[in-house]
């Protein structure tokens, strides 16, 4: 007779793990930084490259020190350095042309919020990004493409919107904002690595695009209006890195779709009030309020088809009304 241990478990496991998922985000962000460095070396001034690297080092150091200080009472060791680097990288990527002090403050602010809210991971960086956007708004005198659009009353010709700020290529590879094309590549990388809640990105971007397309067409601005809206305001970058944090977003597919649609509607509404901060505001509202609300109704959404259909109809109605109002007002 031979004796064996008797663990209660499933004896075969997939090779996916939390650390692998976090690493996938980390690698994609590193790839983003490399792209930005190379792009700046080729297209712009090499001075920017030094600024990016220093910002990154400063932000990572700040993140480590802040986390250490925040955990002193609980005597917790810093376990997940890759997560801290990811947070810093997101902040630096969005605010790469901001000064060092703002980067430090944004990093500290993000980690304090992470400590307070607890169940968020790298998406805590959106709070730091908000700080950067506020700083840029008040203290930097730059006319961003979105600011120009606002000044034009949200309507503009192809020449005014695209040509005045660069070319289609420069929009795709990132002129003032982070490259939408690299954001899309990273989305597919994370999707391939099974690390991302892709439903959130799909529903968010699809809703946003549909409404912007309708507005553009109704206002006689053709498809370039949608192109402009999608390539400005870091919408694709933030929908990949700010929206998809698993711990602070709904669990099941239908909830994720609804969450994405609601956030897209908020983003669109904010686009015409605070254009630069529109995505960030919607992400923060989503994380603090809408996520909890949707998780509360998840059981009904999952098991009560009529209820789910009602919610979908209501959302569709809101989207329609919003589109009509925007078409009239603009």
């Amino acid at each position: 007779m031979t004796n064996f241990s008797t663990p209660n478990k499933t004896y075969v496991k997939s090779n996916n793990s939390v650390s692998k998922m976090q690493n996938s985000y980390f690698y994609s962000l590193i790839a983003f930084i490399i792209f930005l460095v190379i792009y700046n070396l080729i297209i712009k001034e090499p001075v920017n490259v030094i600024h990016i690297v220093i910002s990154l080092i400063i932000s990572i150091m700040t993140a480590i020190i802040t986390t250490y200080i925040l955990n002193i009472k609980e005597k917790k060791k810093i376990k997940n350095i890759t997560s801290l680097i990811s947070i810093s990288t997101i902040i630096v990527l969005v605010g790469y042309n901001t000064n060092y002090l703002v980067i430090i403050l944004a990093t500290i602010f993000s980690l304090i919020v992470k400590k307070i809210i607890k169940n968020i991971n790298i998406s805590c960086s959106i709070y730091g990004i908000l700080l950067i956007i506020i700083y840029n708004y008040f203290f930097k005198d730059i006319d961003t493409p979105l600011q120009i659009l606002k000044n034009m009353g949200y309507i503009g010709s192809y020449e005014a919107l695209i040509k005045s700020n660069g070319t289609i290529t420069s929009y795709l590879f990132g002129s003032y904002y982070l490259s939408p094309i690299v954001s899309m590549i990273m989305f597919f990388y994370l999707f391939h690595k099974k690390a991302i809640k892709y439903n959130l990105v799909f529903s968010y971007v699809l809703t946003f695009s549909t409404i912007m397309l309708i507005i553009g067409l109704v206002k006689g601005m053709n498809i370039y209006y949608l192109f402009f809206q999608l390539t400005t305001g870091n919408i694709l970058f933030l929908s990949v890195y700010g929206l998809t944090d698993s711990t602070s977003t709904p669990t099941i597919n239908i909830s994720q779709n609804i969450y994405g649609v609601i956030l897209a509607l908020i983003s669109i509404a904010m686009r015409f009030v605070f254009p630069e901060a529109s995505v960030i505001i919607s992400l923060i509202i989503g994380q603090l309020f809408i996520n909890k609300l949707i998780e509360k109704i998840t059981i009904k959404l999952k098991y009560n088809r009529k209820y789910a259909a009602k919610v979908k109809l209501i959302l569709l109605g809101i989207a329609l009304v919003m589109t009509i109002i925007l078409c009239i007002v603009i």
Binding site: N16, M21, K197, S246, T249, T251, I252, N253, Q256
Partner: peptide, 9 residues
């Protein structure tokens, strides 16, 4: 749990 939702998928 990181609420990734893979179990429900």
């Amino acid at each position: 749990c990181i609420k990734c939702g893979k179990c429900s998928e």
